[in-house]
């Protein structure tokens, strides 16, 4: 429920100049949240159990997006 790979991330490689002072970040990631893709919520949307809904912050599984620091090693 929490840590699986999310479909709601994108990334790009920032331009690397010859004289950039810091080691390159390689990949810059950003979030494309579920609300971008769903439109008006359809009927009979899949739900979490009551307890998981209270934990995650949403009743509806398609809106759930677990977030963690993408740069953490």
């Amino acid at each position: 429920m929490t840590h699986e790979k999310t479909p709601f991330r994108r990334s790009f490689t920032p331009f690397r100049g010859l004289y950039d002072p810091c080691p390159p970040l390689l990949k810059k990631t950003y979030v494309v949240p579920p609300n971008l893709f769903i439109g008006f919520q359809p009927p009979d949307f899949p739900q979490f159990s009551a307890i998981d809904a209270l934990k995650t912050g949403t009743l509806w599984t398609p809106f759930y997006d677990y977030y963690d620091n993408p740069y953490k090693k």
Binding site: P33, P34, N35, I38, Q41, K55, T56, G57, T58, W60, F63, Y64, D65, Y66, Y67
Partner: peptide
Amino acid sequence: RFLREREIVHSQ
């Protein structure tokens, strides 16, 4: 994380 999820639902 709970608060962040609420923002997603609000935006929706």
